[in-house]
Design a protein around this nucleic acid. Sequence first.
RNA 1: GGGAGAUUAGCUCAGUUGGUUCAGAGCGCCUGCCUUACAAGCAGGAUGUCGGGGGUUCGAAUCCCUCAUUUCCCA
Length: 876
Amino acid sequence: MEIPKTYEPRLAEERWYSHWMAKGYFHSEPDEREPFTVVIPPPNVTGVLHMGHMLNNTIQDVLVRKARMEGKNACWVPGTDHASIATEAKVVQKLRQEGIKKSDLSRDEFLRHAFDWKEKYGGVILQQLKKLGASCDWERTSFTMDPEYSESVITVFIDLFNKGKIYRGVRMINWDPEAQTALSDEEVIYKEVNSKLFHVRYKIAGTEDEWITIATTRPETILGDAAICVHPDDERYKHLQGKQVIVPIVNRVIPIIADEYVEMEFGTGCLKVTPAHDVNDYELGKKYDLETIDIFHDNGIVNENGLHYAGNDRFDVRKEIAKELDAKGYLVKVEDHINKVGFSERTDCVIEPRLSLQWFVSMKELAQPALDNVMNGTISFHPDKFKNTYRHWMENVKDWCISRQLWWGHRIPAFFYGSGSDEFVVARTIDEALAAAKVKSGNDALTASDLKQDEDVLDTWFSSWLWPISVFNGLTQPNNEEIKYYYPTNDLVTAPEIMFFWVARMIIAGYEYMGELPFKNVYYTGIVRDKLGRKMSKSLGNSPDPIELIEKYGADGVRLGILISSPAGNDLPFDSSQCEQGRNFTNKIWNASRLVMGWEVKQMEQPKAAVKAIEWFHARFQHELAIINDLMNKFKISEALMAIYKLVWDDFCSWYLEMIKPGYEQPIDQATLDQTIVYFEQLLCLLQPFTPFIAEELWHLLRERKEGEDIIIASWPKEATYNKEVLHQFAVAEEVIINIRNIRKQNNIANKVKMDLFVKKNNELDQAFDAVVVKMGNLTQLDYVNEKIANANTFLVAANEYFIPFGDSIDLVAEKAKMEEELAYTKGFLKSVQSKLSNEKFVAGAPEQVITNERKKEADAIQKIEILTEKLAGLK
RNA sequence: GGGAGAUUAGCUCAGUUGGUUCAGAGCGCCUGCCUUACAAGCAGGAUGUCGGGGGUUCGAAUCCCUCAUUUCCCA
């Protein structure tokens, strides 16, 4: 039976994923074990897998798989988010391609289309996650618009309303004229754009030719001007305070007010105030009781307040009005200017600050426990530097605008029975609403048809903030078995960008509805970037298709490639060469297994080198295991992976296997083979969370397994005691071997050629690893001598002298030069140590231990110099 | 404009309380090897004023000040 030289991932991946599914290893039910729960950050139902998901979900899978091996009842809940704006935009677009306009459809018709679409294309991303190896409990797949989930959302809305935490109010909100909906502050992205700063002069009322010049980037809003504002201390304008000006074109008379909000240095130091179209202006408007003149329709078209500009788009009006101002002599000058403009995260259109009647959650009180419990460490952030950002936001939290003028989402359960702003009730059903409305209105004759439900839906995050609770139906069935068992969840893995959208609000909801934290740890991943440091995005086309990567490098290779250099919170500059590294690693393990499985066993004595190798690898493995566990506990996942990588490749393959390897076509003894397989299995266990497919594949190739003996449910290796001294002894042997190899290389001595090695002991030397040195150095013998050997290559390890007699070709000059260099370095070293030791302040100030170390350094160096000097003399 | 970080080898990053795992790892690079587990490999090797400047200290990548560059968050 020929085992292929390279590992072929595809077959193994398909076979083992279906095997795991068939055995139900991913499925969790509450039992007496300790739970380990992770809820997936639900991707948009319309989404396709990108590199960010790969990173995020690989990390979750590592955590979940490790917990499973630690005997915990691991439960990873997958699902998708209905993502109201994003999905609605996609459905609208798809309908448009079919020639259907949203405005031609009724709400119900539109929703039917949307659900059809979701059924057909939604959740592709979950199928893709399976290719990655994600061990999610697919039987628990949730969707934020599942009936029971929707019920929790409505329950929470009603509850918060009844507690007075939800209110309806006119506020300045971010309006998306494209999607024609309000957006939360977090959905607005500010970008720097090149724009123009228009200097426009307004005539002072009651004067012939006295003017005041303002600077604005948005001249079209002149149509809605309500005041001019200057700084109270600004000497240039002091005489104008309290006077009035005439708005150009509009010819409205407005006051000049003074407020410290104005920056004297900016522009002309005069600000025009348009309360309807700017957040700060709105605040000024409230303060000075100014008129609020809205000049736009919902879609950004100028309305009847815009005089002859009515019916034109806001950006066209900006150009046109500039021309008119210029023509009429109002435009003083135009400057280039860079300013920050808000764009809609979803539609990328310029946000219009706008006054609007919306629903809000009052956040201040709700946020308090969420702030406290992160700051006091009840909930840990990894890395914890994100606590600063979190605190800053939570201390300045603003009320949350939760209504969206969309159809796809949870419709707000408010029912209007009249046209007054307070003539509504909030209720779960139309029947309950009717009953409540009768009471509230005092009108017993109301019928269901008199009630009109609010047209708006809720912000998507108003449903996803309940995710850790509602996937277990904790709100609809409080205290059910599952919520009691799985909540609070353990680790949340997500991107820092959604710390406020999602993480903070989940914590808030957790404390409000469960009375405790939703998760104990939050692991923030970085942003996946391309080699040039650009964010991966569809529009740049710089994002590799993860599925193609998996096909090319294998799922394990990609997982390793993506984890190997992504410390928590740091961006991940991704390059497919990392996947290549991953692929190479899986291939390396594959070949190690070919070696081990190819050996014939014979009844024979165990070689000494093998005995020592086994002793050493136990120590080495245990030493590293402690480090790996520690790193994992600290969520330093890439570092843990790197430690495993080196343990497998360097320690196990390059050293251990070479030490025990019999000669070509030679048999191996039973004891060594058995122990080697045990070691191999332990390494596979460490690898399983990271590279689950090849781990399972080799687990089954290395040994006959009974039904159900799969590595996915095997135990994570236990820490055990080990002999630290062995590690030290091996390090010395290792140095000797490296020196031998160097001499071979320098003198062009082939590895096949056996050599003699003589040792002159000057110091205590443990000879335990001599057999290993003989084997690895390919020596005929290793002998101890009392006198120096003449005509030999020499080297020093731990002040012991090693000699390899010259063969035919020698290079005395080179040998001498090498020694002289070493001697010079050692002398310099000694000098620096001695100068330190002769410094009285150092001796007085440094701790005992440090001084002892320095003295030892000094002694070692002196000895080394003696030996080297002698040797050099001998060469002459 | 306000806040929080970052700056260590060509690249990506480790580096606990200042002093023996202090200048490290992986990749890349250079040299030599197709040595029957693996060329997707083996063996060996090189690489840094620890962003600049100043200070504290017997001693600074580590603490303080300052400047520069840069990322993110908020307005």
